[in-house]
Design a protein around this nucleic acid. Structure first.
Length: 331
DNA sequence: CGGTTTTGACCAGCGC
DNA sequence: GCGCTGGTCAAAACCG
């Protein structure tokens, strides 16, 4: 058990070589044979139009390994990217012919177009749903902020302006544990049966006050060993140090992506490591940097300079980082 | 006793 | 307009 969790924490608990091999594939999904975290995700800029109206919505799939600061990650990836090798995306066909439509990630659903792949490529798809559709739900007034404990049932102020949904991104993790530790504290607020799946989907909210981050956790019914965790929103606080040492540090390290260092001039090597589909041309593309920069600075708090320090137990991480990366420890 | 989980009900979009 | 579905609420139960 604990083991599983620990593994999940470890962002680089995978085989380097395998990783590299996967680089070449269009399918940024990998896992090792030992039920290690597979952490792959496809990003789809659903709310691009929201964050940046001028943006056109693009699908973007990428993968990372293991868990990191989801918060920053989501920001980091919520951008347009040239690598479109992926996705089928629901982008263009937000609506599926049949009902399982909104299930976004529906990796566990057998929706025809869900771009989710099937068991053989289980995680291939992990695509986020079209935000436009998701917006529907946002019952405004309440949101996740507990500030307003409105009596929703009766007189809910008819909400009008839909609050655009936060970008979401998902992780696939091979684990027996449904609710994987990620450093943050969550409170479950709902559970629903998933259509065409024997496994229910659980809804969690960050327990931190005024933090509206939510996550959904469900198990792929195609491959029950895979847990699909979808994050929505950005934490506006640091990761509570509930995790053991480095893991927490790791997960909560905004500096990882949030420091100005990461702002607009990420080391190419670094990006390449974390964004397997990232290419040099991406980096050279002004839009890429621009988007990245923009996305990394959505949150004021993240502007602050952090002295990035890598947890010592992440040897692999050390190895992956370019020597120029701040905090990189010399052997 | 305070925080979390459970769970049935409710609500809003969407497709037909 | 109706039915379906995902998402959310909130009271009750549970737990440490």
């Amino acid at each position: 058990m604990a083991n599983e969790k620990d593994r999940f924490y470890d962002p680089f608990h995978y085989n380097h070589h395998e990783h590299q091999l996967n680089h070449s594939s269009n399918f940024p999904f990998f896992r090792d044979n030992n039920s290690t975290p597979i952490a792959s995700q496809n990003f789809q800029g659903f709310d691009h139009h929201h964050h940046n109206p001028s943006h056109q919505r693009t699908t973007f799939t990428d993968c990372l390994h293991g868990s990191m600061d989801y918060n920053t990650l989501s920001r980091a990836f919520d951008m347009s990217c040239s690598s479109s090798e992926v996705l089928s995306s629901i982008d263009e066909n937000p609506k599926k012919p049949s009902a399982g439509d909104s299930a976004g990630i529906s990796g566990n659903q057998s929706t025809p177009n869900s771009s989710v792949s099937s068991s053989s490529n289980e995680a291939e798809a992990l695509i986020e749903e079209d935000s436009t559709k998701s917006q529907k739900k946002d019952k405004q007034p309440k949101g996740c902020e507990d500030e307003e404990e409105k009596p929703k049932k009766e007189n809910k102020p008819k909400k009008k302006e839909k609050k655009p949904r936060e970008p979401r991104f998902a992780f696939l993790t091979k684990s027996e544990i449904d609710n994987l530790e990620d450093g943050y504290r969550w409170r479950k607020y709902g559970q629903k049966a998933v259509k065409n799946s024997p496994y229910p989907r659980s809804y969690y909210r960050c327990t931190s006050q005024k933090c509206s981050v939510k996550k959904r956790v469900e198990r792929s019914f195609q491959d029950p060993s895979i847990v699909i965790t979808t994050y929505e929103g950005q934490h506006n606080h640091h990761c509570p140090a509930t995790l053991r040492g480095s893991a927490a540090t790791m997960l909560s390290a905004p500096p990882f992506f949030g420091s100005s260092y990461m702002g607009s001039s990420l080391p190419q090597d670094f990006l390449a490591q974390f964004l397997p589909s990232y290419t040099q041309s991406d980096h050279q593309n002004p839009m890429f940097n621009q988007n990245l920069s923009n996305n990394l600075h959505l949150q004021p708090q993240q502007h602050q300079q952090h002295q990035f320090q890598l947890p010592r137990d992440y040897g692999l991480l050390q190895d992956l980082l370019p020597s120029s990366f701040p905090g990189k420890q010399e052997p």
